[in-house]
Amino acid sequence: MKPKVAFFSFSSCEGCQLQALNLEDQLLSLLDIIEIVNFREAIDDKLENYDIAFVEGSISRYSDIPELIKIRNTAKVLVAFGSCSSQAGINAIRNRLRPEEANAMVYGDRAAWVETGHAKGIDEFVKVDYYLNGCPMDRREFIRLVKAAASGIPFIIPKLPVCTECKLRGNVCILEDRNTLCLGAVTLGGCNAICPAYGHPCVGCRGILPDANIEGMAELLRHHGASDLEIEHLYAMYNYGRISLLTARAASR
């Protein structure tokens, strides 16, 4: 029996689902090992019973919570799909303001009509089995996870920083050579350093490593000419939760 796979979306751009569609040729061989029963970006039919749920997007409305819980109760394996879902991602930028402040900024005089609040990762509400972090998620990692889940074996992302994969590609270090502020040293790898490989700095979309040397990183970024505000912005893009940690530590000093 091929496991049934469903995709769900909360507050997000649905770019991770799109990434799955972008697999193109590999998508067909994936369909040999799984059956997709719910995939709004690709198919109309829906089935209410599934084994593996990929949940995209962060939770920003109370009304999302029951739906998320229902997914958790149905799926054998629940995957946080992308940064929004894994760590509230870019949506968490709004968390620095009070919900009504942010809503007023975005929706103006219609703010009261919109139900939306602070963005949270899905693991604040349900148990998550696997995280496919990244904005968007990494397609090779997605395939690896599907293979693991379909054969009932655990899926593990080695806890390596982006720098590791960047070095192994033989890339010129953009931080050292172009003084481009880059978070590759403290960000979870697995993306094969795709951004630095194309000249873009790592902005931490896959999340800051749990044991990262945040103070040391800030120090070396300052050494490369970054102001504290720039550092804060760099972290805040995808790791608002961690940046508050950083500022809290700085305040306590």
Partner: peptide, 9 residues
């Protein structure tokens, strides 16, 4: 150890 960011490079 304080300076090192454990990037492995």
């Amino acid at each position: 150890g304080k300076k090192c960011v454990a990037c492995g490079s």
